[in-house]
Simulated scan of single mutants.
Amino acid sequence: MSTQPDHGQELIPRPERTPEVVRVALARIAPHRLGEMERHKEQALTAAIADGKIGHLQHWLTYWHAQVEIERRPDLSARYRAALASVHGTEGRDDPAFRSGMNELTAVEAEAQRAVSA
């Protein structure tokens, strides 16, 4: 019996936390985001070289592992997309719907982070 909570049908199993495995998982479930992932990796690598700290690359991998978690789980993906639509459909930062959408985005990302950190 699994100790993981039931989130409905997952598109793929949760990948291991390695750069190549996370990239392959993203390619399977959200290939349209590979360019974004690569640009973010180049920024992290440039920052790591500039200041000599590997933390930039660790952050990059953690971020994309969580993004794969969102994409692989229809429950999180639906919430994430609805929140994005809410944020982009508002009149600005003073609109209560903007704050609500941002709160939901933060909640979805936090849930994904907890899932991949467990």
Rank of each mutant, 00 (worst) to 15 (best):
G101F: 04
R99W: 01
G8S: 05
I29S: 00
P13K: 06
D6I: 07
G89S: 00
V22W: 05
A48S: 12
K41V: 11
H59K: 12
S117E: 11
K41S: 09
V21N: 06
W60F: 13
K41C: 12
A82V: 08
W64S: 10
R72L: 04
Y80P: 09
S2T: 08
H7P: 00
R33P: 00
V21R: 12
E38M: 06
D51T: 07
D51I: 04
M102S: 06
E20Q: 14
P13G: 13
P96K: 04
T90K: 00
E10V: 13
E104F: 04
N103K: 03
S117V: 00
E42A: 15
N103H: 01
R39I: 13
T18G: 03
A25T: 05
M102I: 10
L57I: 04
R73E: 03
L26R: 12
R23T: 15
W60T: 10
P15A: 09
D95E: 02
H59D: 14
G35H: 08
A48P: 01
P13V: 01
A47S: 10
R39E: 15
A50C: 03
A48M: 08
L11V: 15
D51V: 03
I12P: 08
R73T: 09
S77L: 07
L76C: 10
R81A: 01
L76A: 07
H88V: 02
H88Y: 10
R93G: 07
L45E: 13
A78L: 08
D51K: 02
H59M: 05
M37R: 04
T46R: 15
A66W: 08
E38P: 02
R23E: 11
L84T: 12
E36Q: 12
L34P: 06
A83F: 09
R17P: 02
I12K: 06
H32E: 15
G89L: 02
G52R: 09
T3H: 12
I12C: 07
V68E: 08
G55L: 12
A25H: 13
S117C: 00
D6Q: 11
S86I: 08
S117H: 05
P74D: 05
R81I: 01
V87W: 05
M1Q: 07
A48Q: 06
Q4D: 14
E104Y: 00
L34G: 08
I49A: 13
S117D: 09
I54G: 11
E16M: 12
L84K: 12
W60R: 09
H7G: 03
A85P: 02
R73N: 11
P96I: 06
M102R: 03
H56S: 14
M1F: 13
S100A: 07
L84W: 13
V108C: 07
N103F: 00
